[in-house]
Simulated assay, not measured.
Amino acid sequence: MIVSPGVETLQKLVAHQIHNLFFLSATESAALDRVLPAVLQKTEVCFRGSSNKYYTKDGQTFFSVYHSGQYCIFLYFLAREVFLDRSASRDLADKVYYLNKALNSLDLYYEVEMPPVFHLDHPLGAVLGRAVYGMNFTFSQQCTVGNNKGVYPCIGDNVQMLSGSKILGHCHIGDNVVLAANAYVKDTDIPPDSIVFGSSPDLTIKARKAE
């Protein structure tokens, strides 16, 4: 994967941003360096699955440190990798999560397990809770995935959430489903290959044409 302007710059940038906002100890800095190769590998797998023209360059997977959407995904993988590294401090994972929230207005906690390949477009104001997420999950601005009475949704593969859409509670969202802008699904199962409009319990569900 091409990292622009370079891995060394990326290392310095992350450390600098965390230190300026929260302070960064020498031990935490070493932990960031230790997990970075695994994070970049996961980032590459995720970006390789994208059809977005900005994610490839000269036939190779491309990561621009100054592309906010790409950096947002990278920071999620970084926070999660720190969390999974038992020798790293929980405080460091919190700092990276908080940094992502501060920079991108995305609330995506490191304990939430995203699929290896997921996509986002203008994620401002989105909140993604502890649901089960399928491959190629896609979301936009002001999307919400959350619980109702402690129960979270189960989301299939190739599900797209357009701006302002919400999935809450005891829901099973089938594969290849599109939630239209501002759709609100609560405690409702959605069949595969559907487009969803409106709000629960008065949803309009239409068959989605095969692409």
Rank of each mutant, 00 (worst) to 15 (best):
M1C: 05
M1T: 00
M1N: 08
S4A: 15
G6F: 06
G6A: 03
L10F: 11
K12N: 12
K12G: 12
L13A: 09
L13I: 02
V14K: 03
A15C: 07
I18M: 04
I18L: 12
L24G: 09
E28W: 03
E28V: 01
A31C: 13
A38Y: 06
Q41M: 10
E44D: 13
V45A: 09
C46L: 07
F47D: 06
R48Y: 04
G49M: 02
S51T: 11
S51C: 10
Y55M: 12
Y55G: 14
T56K: 10
T56D: 11
T56F: 11
K57N: 13
D58Q: 06
Q60W: 06
T61I: 05
F62Q: 10
F63P: 03
F63E: 00
S64D: 15
S64A: 13
H67E: 15
S68T: 08
G69W: 04
Y76I: 00
F77A: 02
R80P: 12
V82K: 01
F83Y: 13
D85E: 13
S87R: 10
S89I: 00
R90M: 11
D91W: 08
D91Y: 06
A93H: 04
Y97C: 14
Y97R: 11
Y97F: 15
Y97P: 12
L99S: 10
S105H: 14
D107L: 05
E111A: 13
E113M: 08
P115Y: 04
P116T: 00
P116M: 05
H119R: 01
H122D: 07
V127Y: 07
G129V: 02
G129K: 04
G129E: 14
R130F: 14
A131G: 09
Y133T: 02
N136H: 10
F137S: 06
F139S: 10
G146H: 07
G146R: 02
V151F: 03
I155L: 08
G156Y: 06
D157R: 13
N158H: 08
Q160P: 07
L162S: 14
S165M: 04
I167A: 05
I167R: 00
I167C: 05
G169M: 03
H170L: 10
H170Y: 10
H172G: 09
I173Y: 09
Y184A: 14
K186D: 14
D187F: 02
I190H: 07
P192L: 00
S194I: 00
V196N: 04
G198Q: 06
S200R: 00
S200M: 02
P201T: 02
L203C: 07
L203S: 10
L203Y: 07
K209F: 10
